[in-house]
């Protein structure tokens, strides 16, 4: 089995007549794509990228030759660019995890009695500015859990699993008092 490859970007349309291309970067900071050095495309060819403008890059092939021709550049449109997982730097601290590592881990629920049961897999990681949350489950059924130490006490990337504790749910619905008619009917008076 080969090393895990991670999709980092995709080549877009040619820009100008000198072989430059638009490249859509999926990295957290788009400019970081060039810092990963050699990128492999989905056909196994290797490319090195240098930014020449915002979203516009010059590509160098495996032999070190720069693409200088628009026609050669046009052949590369829609090629996906990957790097091996091993080439990503280690996260800054023990509480940070790559999304690519978390997605696909088996989720095991820790029960109140002390046992464990299979809960599904991590389907996605969401973060909309209010802390990360894990979407855990399987096809057709999923649940969102806050990515906190209380709800996800154990993350074992090497072991391929996360331990989850489902939080209690407090229903925040507005409690409406009895209708006037109901109060009259049960004799409590108005």
């Amino acid at each position: 089995m080969g090393a895990q490859r991670i999709l980092m970007g995709v080549i877009g349309r040619p820009h100008g007549v000198r072989g430059l291309l638009r490249v859509h970067s999926y990295t957290a900071d788009p400019a970081d794509l060039a810092s990963y050095g050699t990128l492999e495309d989905d056909r196994g060819e290797r490319w090195t990228l240098r930014w020449r403008g915002e979203g516009i890059a010059e590509l160098r092939d495996g032999q070190g030759n720069v693409l200088t021709d628009r026609d050669r550049a046009a052949v590369l449109v829609n090629r996906k660019l990957f790097v091996e997982r091993d080439r990503l730097p280690d996260p800054d601290d023990a509480e940070e995890f790559y999304l690519a590592d978390l997605v696909g881990l088996a989720a095991v629920e820790r029960l109140a009695g002390g046992g464990e049961r299979t809960f599904g897999t991590v389907l996605a990681v969401h973060d909309y500015g209010a802390g990360a949350s894990l979407e855990v489950g399987d096809a057709g059924r999923s649940e969102l859990l806050p990515f906190t130490r209380l709800c996800v006490p154990e993350v074992d990337i090497a072991g391929g699993r996360v331990v989850v504790c489902r939080p209690d749910e407090l229903d925040g619905r507005e409690v409406v008092g009895p209708e006037i008619g109901e109060a009259a009917a049960d004799g409590s008076g108005l």
């Binding site: 990295t27 957290a28 509480e95």
Partner: peptide
């Protein structure tokens, strides 16, 4: 996901 990270709160 590429190189994006999540922090456990």
């Amino acid at each position: 996901s590429s190189d994006k990270k999540a922090r456990r709160g």
